[in-house]
Structure formats: structure tokens, C-alpha cells
Design a protein around this nucleic acid. Structure first.
Lengths: 151, 151
DNA sequence: GGGATATATTTCGACATCGAATCATTCGAC
DNA sequence: GTCGAATGATTCGATGTCGAAATATATCCC
């Protein structure tokens, strides 16, 4: 029994479900995040930024905020570290000089290109404990939950 | 389509499912964590420690590590801040003087007792977008995933 | 066109988080 | 009984994370 909480049955069920949900993500990340760090020297946030840049091309920091769901001040910090490590560059947008455009370097692109397949492989291996149908059902329920909350 | 990744269909499905899973937890926490901070001045980790102490009584820091799934050095930091705020006390275990026993103060107990029902209410409200059967199915899938990974 | 307002980013202070190194204490082997 | 290994906690340095305040630039309204 994950939950010790005493209360209405629907509250107990909701809490119990949420705890299992959070733990499953924790367990996945406990494998994935140290893997990125160990094999590629990347934190989760750094990887998220690089991956967004691969898929979408150069982005402003504001657009990166939207993509990785973090605060503006956080994106500044993460991009600082990526820039220091030579994985991205910053360029002032000439059209709007408030904006910083973040772009992958060759080194950054090469690193993320090598990291993505390994990372996806690990995700797939962990997910294999669920059948494809179970994965689809899990995805459906999570999507329903996630999108309904964002109101 | 959450996933842009090109690869074997089972990898795409796994990645897609994992993204939805992680996003749903993110969305929940985006409501719950600022709520704890705003209404009770507690971070997520502080709340987790206090809750463990309510359910299980006084614990050593090592036992707290197990419960909240964080590193030892992190528990030291979180307990430092709880102690500074007068919510817990530390006592050396007389039987094994390496061990620090962490115990709720009256103030700490009162705070967590007031916070838990509000927190659970928020969890239940967010979870309500899923029927009880859907919640049970989500819990089952997450449990299967989470326990299988922890190998 | 100049001043008020809005937006993008940075800075700052606080907390979380980890791993590695360190310290104190206990335990085990001899 | 003592020395070395193991264990619990702390310290340290790096990174992430937030919100609030500051800064720079752009835009809007008159």
C-alpha cells in the first residue's frame, strides 16, 4: 500500500495513483539521467535544450523556455553552461536586439546525434516491460491527465 | 505527435509513451509544488520529509534517504533547513553515535497536519479527469513499469 | 517623437541535487 | 585489545531551479 492517508475513498485512490505515477517516472529517470551524465557529460536540461535545437533549428531563449518548460532565468543558466562547453552559440537577433538566438555548434550537433540513439534505446528497454497495447493505454491516460490539468 | 524521433516503431512508441508519462507528472507538480510553497512555505522535499516523519515516527537520516529517494548529502541539506525553521529536531542516537535521529517538533506536526489535506485535495481534483477505473488502470501500469525497472 | 508600457534576458538569493572527499564511529578479524 | 574496513553523516563544488528585481530594447499612444 503506497498510501497511509485516511480519507474519502476517491481521495485515497487519487493519491495512490499519483504516487505510483510519480514513482514510475522517478524510476525511469534514475536510469536515464545518470546515463546521460556518465556517457555524454550532459545533464537532463542540457540534453533537452540540445534536442530541441536539433529538431527545431536555432531558437530564442524564450522559445526554449516554452519547449523545455522551465523559467527564463533557468534557461539563461543552462545555455551559459552549454556555451561555455562549446556546444551552442548565442547571437543577438538583429531584428529585435532583446532576443538571444541559440544555435548548435558542430560539436553540439555531433554530441546530441550520438546521445539520442543510446538514450532512446534505454527508454525502449525500460518500457518493454509493458506490451505495445499497454504502452498505448498508458500514453492515452497520461495524455488525458496532462492536458486536462494544463487549464 | 510528441515525438520527432525516427527509428524502429517500438522505439518510437516507447519514447512517445515516456514523454506523455513525464509530462503528466510535470503538469501535476506544476500545480502541487507551487501550492505547497505558497500556502505552507514548504518545498517538495521538505514536505516529503515531514510526511514520512508523520507516518513513521522519528527516523534516522539514512532511513529518510530510503523513503524520499534522495542522496545522503541532500537529506543533510533538507533537514538543515527544516531544523533552522523549527519544524524538526536532530538527536544523536545514543546506541550508535554516528546516527542522527530526526523528529518532528510540535510546530512541524501542526504544519504538516494542516498541509496534507489541502495537498491531497489538490491531487484528487486533478485526478478527477480520470474515472476511478481509469485511475486504477493507470496505477497498475505505472506500478508494473516502476517495479520492473528497479532491478 | 517622447514618455509609458510591454517584452526578452540577466542577475541575485535561496533551495535542491548529486558525487567525491572527509570525518566520526562502529564492527570485524586477528 | 587494536587496526583496518565499513557505515552514517557532513562538507564542498558544480549544476539546476525558482521568483523577484534589474536592465535593455521595442512598441504604443498621444
Amino acid at each position: 500500500m503506497p498510501t497511509h492517508y485516511k480519507g474519502p475513498p476517491d481521495h485515497v485512490l487519487a493519491l495512490d495513483t499519483f504516487i505510483k505515477l510519480a514513482r514510475s517516472v522517478n524510476a525511469m529517470q534514475a536510469i536515464l539521467i545518470p546515463g546521460l551524465q556518465r556517457d555524454f557529460g550532459l545533464t537532463e536540461s542540457q540534453f533537452a535544450v540540445l534536442e530541441a535545437l536539433v529538431h527545431l533549428g536555432a531558437l530564442s531563449q524564450g522559445q526554449l523556455c516554452q519547449k523545455i518548460l522551465r523559467s527564463g532565468s533557468n534557461v539563461t543558466t543552462v545555455v551559459d553552461n552549454l556555451e561555455r562547453d562549446g556546444l551552442v552559440t548565442r547571437q543577438r537577433d538583429e531584428a529585435d536586439r532583446r532576443v538571444q538566438i541559440v544555435e548548435l555548434t558542430e560539436k553540439g550537433r555531433a554530441l546530441v546525434d550520438s546521445a539520442v540513439p543510446v538514450h532512446v534505446e534505454r527508454v525502449a528497454r525500460a518500457m518493454q516491460v509493458l506490451s505495445p497495447d499497454e504502452q498505448r493505454e498508458l500514453g492515452r491516460l497520461c495524455r488525458k491527465l496532462g492536458t486536462a490539468i494544463a487549464l
